[in-house]
Amino acid sequence: MLGFQDAGALLGFLLTIASALGCVIYGVVNWNKPAPEEETKEIREEQEWEDHDPDRSPKERK
């Protein structure tokens, strides 16, 4: 099939395509998850985490 001469190489080829498709489907289905209220909480956590980043100067950490 498609010029492949053994099942090992063919399976690698098919699994590569299948996994890429799987990723696209998963991403599209979950594009807007988690819900906005959950996201607000996560963004607050992120801001607190960023505020402690030693890479940023105190002026940047407003």
Partner: peptide, 8 residues
Amino acid sequence: KSDRELNR
């Protein structure tokens, strides 16, 4: 910043 970014 959120799990949503990881899903996308």
